[in-house]
Design a protein around this nucleic acid. Structure first.
Lengths: 345, 345
DNA sequence: ACGTCGTTCTCCAACGATGAAGAACACAGT
DNA sequence: ACTGTGTTCTTCATCGTTGGAGAACGACGT
């Protein structure tokens, strides 16, 4: 016998297979002596349950999918760690599906669950947009959305304070005296999405102080929010000859790229130019100088997303029928001041 | 009918379920007209095969495990991306198991495969050591080891040129005139592992030029190779008052932390101190200044590890019996020169 | 004495696919 | 006409577990 089955355990303990199953799944009406015999048999045979058979019979795999663009990007790597940690606490496994910032990758991730084994999906879209929203509704498995790329009133959604975060970042710069603040990370293509919302926060903060947006201060990064593009966008802004005394970057990678470019040009941070990022990835703490940034509440996002998904899974399980309406959860945001901005006076 | 089964397709196409199965799995003896009818029925019903049932019957899940310490660390995040990409090309799914640098996490990862669904495991140990090697032998599933934490002649293993890499890094510094080269990332605890090997490369390079290792130049980072510890270790070295004109850090995060500390102390890189890292994570390209580092061949490592694992899985599948002896593959290494070191003369 | 109830356990039939074996048929060679 | 061979498809059992139904038993109230 290569690997023992429940029937083997049952035979050894002198009970039926179903009793073994009952013992293992915590069914209460088992005589103590029986339970002990069964557990002893399990031990002696080194029995471990066959998960596949259990899934086939019960219809639940205890596996959820996490579709994110790329783990190499620290924001998503760290987010994935948080989701995995939360999942471990709840005894769930996570299948990560990197979508590579491509439409095909994201469509594939949406199709996978039916074909693969996952019970539900946490999905952070980057390439799909609002016009694809119908793809996310009426899926035959529970879905939790992350980010601000696509919104639907039919799907649970966890997101962050984008406008408020960018506004707080910009206000900090204004408070320390900056008046020529560049925005790094503008996107042409999208009408929604983090770029638009963060730009909105930037604009609102300026306008509250009676300042207008100067197009020459907008740094475009249509190829993605990587460091390289942050450097490029910063260079483009500086090359217009416009005066710059502050930078709001729409994520930390852009900010670090921009700081790189500022350094190359011999500008001192924060003396000549103050810089604020967005995301609070681990790098931000150890750059030179360390980066002031917005902590968007990553841990909260991971935790809430998983909880929402598991709650939906329970709803499917118990046909008691009280289907909750979809939730939109916005995580708490926090400004983290470090060395790339001067102290507030 | 919520979700159609093979029997439904069969009924619709007027054939038996087994014929549907045969069509879908590419069995050759099917009349063309039958094949078409079946595929039409599949289309019409939107049928997708139930993976769980297939696994139960066939015994293979097409899922492999990847056990790494933490995705938030760019090296592992990027490694995971490479493994996932390679897996996608081969139509395999990957279940990532973060072990959190803990012994318990790693032991759990080793136990999981039996309980969970994976056919095999790619394992990058960080907390287990050579004394645990017996845990890795005689597992009842195929295993591929990564890294240099544990070695076994019974297990396939993919690793990198640690000694040669650290030696190349140190030689570069010597070539550009450094003579007081700090080594950042020393560990007390381990007798094997990357730290020891990279230190060995450092020492060999020095000794080849007739230089001795100066204990004051050794920066310890027993709490892990994070940026924070790189900064701390660098600070400790500088605080001894010893003169430093070069730094070999045992990974990029340590190097970036060390650069941070050097910056804080007003030392210019590379003018006052030249710095070399190890790993070539994406950050290294965009730090200020950009970091000279060793590319250990991450993509090759991911690819070869997956291939070795899949090859073992095939061996299990076909009892033809020619079990290949375990392989030790060492990936190609490459020195990437950037701004943190002066040009070689 | 009898029905009711709670406890403890068993039996059977699924879940949905596939491997093994073989039936039915056509066609060729003798 | 008969056997052999190749093609095409079917039947049946099976992977290992769990849901549903209910059997067996004792205790309890009436």
């Amino acid at each position: 016998m290569v690997v023992p089955t429940m029937a083997d355990v049952a035979r050894r303990a002198g009970v039926s297979a179903k009793t073994v199953s009952n013992v293992l799944s915590g069914y209460p009406y088992i005589r103590e002596s029986t339970r002990e015999r069964v557990l002893a048999a399990v031990d002696e045979l080194g029995y471990e349950i066959n998960v596949t058979a259990r899934i086939l019979r019960s219809g639940r795999s205890g596996l959820i999918g996490l579709a994110v663009p790329e783990l190499g990007q620290p924001y998503f790597g760290e987010l994935a760690d948080e989701v995995l940690a939360a999942a471990r606490r709840r005894d769930v496994q996570v299948l990560i599906e990197p979508t590579g910032f491509t439409r095909e990758g994201e469509l594939a991730a949406l199709r996978e669950p039916r074909r693969r084994l996952v019970d539900g999906l946490v999905f952070s879209p980057a390439a799909l947009d609002q016009s694809d929203v119908h793809l996310l509704e009426n899926l035959d498995y529970p879905l939790v959305l992350l980010g601000e790329q696509v919104f639907s009133t039919h799907v649970d959604h966890v997101t962050m304070h984008n406008v408020e975060g960018a506004r707080a970042a910009t206000e900090l710069l204004l408070d320390v005296g900056c008046r020529r603040i560049a925005a790094i990370g503008m996107l042409h293509a999208r009408t929604a999405g983090s770029a638009t919302l963060r730009f909105q926060g930037y604009r609102e903060a300026l306008e509250d102080r009676g300042l207008a947006v100067d197009d020459r201060l907008l740094g475009w990064a249509d190829d993605g929010w990587h460091r390289a593009n942050g450097a490029r966008a910063m260079a483009a802004v500086l090359d217009t000859g416009v005066e710059v005394d502050g930078v709001v970057a729409f994520n930390d990678a852009l900010a670090l790229g921009a700081m790189h470019e500022l350094g190359v040009r011999g500008l001192s941070i924060p003396r000549d130019v103050a810089v604020v990022g967005f995301d609070d990835v681990e790098d931000a703490r150890y750059s030179v100088p360390s980066l002031t940034t917005i902590d968007p509440g990553r841990r909260e996002i991971a935790q809430v997303a998983l909880d929402l998904l598991l709650r939906r899974l329970d709803e499917v399980g118990s046909p008691g029928g009280s289907v909750r309406p979809p939730v939109l959860h916005v995580a708490d945001m926090r400004l983290v001041e470090r060395e790339s901005t001067p102290r507030r006076v």
